[in-house]
């Protein structure tokens, strides 16, 4: 009984400390400017109000930036689901020359830091007048070595008989993929989808380079701009914008944590 009490106390304290940045963001987003700027800073708003949210939505094209982030993240997610499913199918079920070499090439893409290729990609977008457009945010991320690896590992767990039976039936590759494999692979596809969405939604360096106007900024860049403008004066403003940007990703990781863990451990636990 005492032991259980200590356990819960330890869990509660640690959770509070680790979650403090989130709790403070929520609390601060409900404070007035003068309240959050007093010293020593209060931890809770004396009279919580939602005015910051209304103000920040009015001051910035934040709604538009929400839309931009959604368009980019959903496109990247759908693109990666499509390209990774196709390539993982080839690696798992088809025989062709140099298969291992091509697969190694796919894995090697995970080793190339995006920053090491960012200048040629910037020049490519500039030369094709794509800077400050959706394609610039989306195109480079439509395929991913990680996604291919994840789905291939999942496909390999299916018994060979399933594939052979489908072939005997004269079922074409595409039909087999669409009507048998994809319905059976929903858990792995969910993992990849969540992962692709999260990383696209949270990207910073590339969208920073590709953004030339507030209207084309993603939420992450919007927050940076908000901070640049408001840094000295209104932390409550910044926190309101931050909380708005966090809502979709926090919902994702709280609701779909099991799927995320399955994806993260693909590389960590062999077998």
């Amino acid at each position: 009984m005492v032991r259980r009490g200590i356990s819960y106390a330890a869990l509660a304290v640690i959770t509070f400390v680790l979650l403090f940045p989130l709790l403070y963001a929520l609390s601060g987003s409900l404070m007035t400017a003068s309240e959050i700027s007093s010293f020593p800073p209060p931890l809770l708003p004396s009279r919580p109000n939602l005015r910051n949210f209304a103000d920040v939505l009015r001051a910035l094209p934040l709604a538009r930036q929400y839309l931009n982030s959604a368009v980019v993240a959903i496109s990247v997610m759908l693109g990666q689901l499509l390209t990774a499913t196709l390539s993982a199918y080839a690696f798992a079920f088809l025989r062709f020359p140099f298969r291992n070499f091509v697969f190694a090439l796919f894995l090697a893409t995970m080793m190339i830091p995006w920053e090491a290729v960012i200048i040629p990609n910037y020049l490519f977008m500039a030369d094709n007048s794509l800077v400050n457009t959706y394609p610039a945010f989306i195109l480079p991320f439509l395929a991913a070595g990680f996604g291919t690896f994840l789905l291939r590992q999942f496909f390999l767990t299916f018994p060979r008989d399933l594939v052979d039976a489908a072939k005997v039936d004269g079922c074409g590759h595409l039909r087999f993929l669409w009507s048998i494999l994809i319905p059976l692979s929903k858990p792995a596809l969910a993992t990849l989808g969540i992962y692709a969405f999260l990383s696209a939604w949270n990207q910073y360096f590339w969208p920073l380079l590709m953004t030339k106007s507030d209207a084309m900024a993603t939420l992450q860049i919007g927050i940076k701009r908000l901070r640049d403008v408001e840094a000295a004066t209104a932390p409550n403003f910044i926190l309101a914008g931050t909380v708005l940007a966090l809502i979709p990703t926090l919902i994702l990781i709280y609701v779909f944590q099991r799927q995320i863990v399955r994806g993260l451990t693909t590389g960590a636990l062999r077998g």
Binding site: T15, N202, Y204, I221, I238, A245, L246, L250, I253, Y254
Partner: peptide, 16 residues
């Protein structure tokens, strides 16, 4: 709950 920081981006974490 302890997975919370994973929902943050560099921008949101840096802002806070």
């Amino acid at each position: 709950l302890l997975a919370t920081p994973f929902g943050f981006s560099v921008a949101t974490a840096s802002a806070v």
